[in-house]
Amino acid sequence: MFSLLCASPGFAEEAGGGSGLGYGLVFSIATLFIGGVGVSQMKYRDKTILIFFAIIGSGTYPSVNAYMANMSLIPKNTVTITASRYNFEVQGEAKVGEPTKVMAAATDVTHAAFIKELGVNLACLPGKGGTKGRDNFRIIVPQQAGTYKIKCVEYCGELHGNMSVDMAGEFVVKP
């Protein structure tokens, strides 16, 4: 049953960063329900707990699998995002349907680059004494061409709120 649920279209899309709230909710409510059956059948407690785990496992497996499949794609393009107060510098472009490695780091304080539509949400971390920090990355496969605004989602100072719409903060996906 769970494998079926997980194979639903919403879920497949989600591995690439789409919306999967439906899947998550169904999954959680179902596990809660099964947990309930487990508790009410207390006599068979040990067995039910085992079954419970097995079901969670089988439900989660395809999800983990799909995600890992995505992360192990060999990227064709690389886009580098460098954050500093208060803008994002973007180098490189992505292409529709091509695996792209998105890298992110910062040069002053912690920022985070968020593009919901593309499933990009990366902490941009600084290194020692104003240098660029460790690169954080994620592999995405963009589905739609366009110019996406990068929002900063980590508090980085007084103007944090305005950082999101700086011109430099644009992520381009070519058709």
Binding site: L25, F27, T31, Y67, A112, V153, E154
Partner: peptide
């Protein structure tokens, strides 16, 4: 609780983190 378990998975977290 339910939302925590849901948003705590890698795939959903990436579109929900810090929102």
């Amino acid at each position: 609780g339910i939302t925590g378990v849901t948003f705590g998975t890698e795939q959903l977290n990436i579109i929900s983190h810090n929102t």
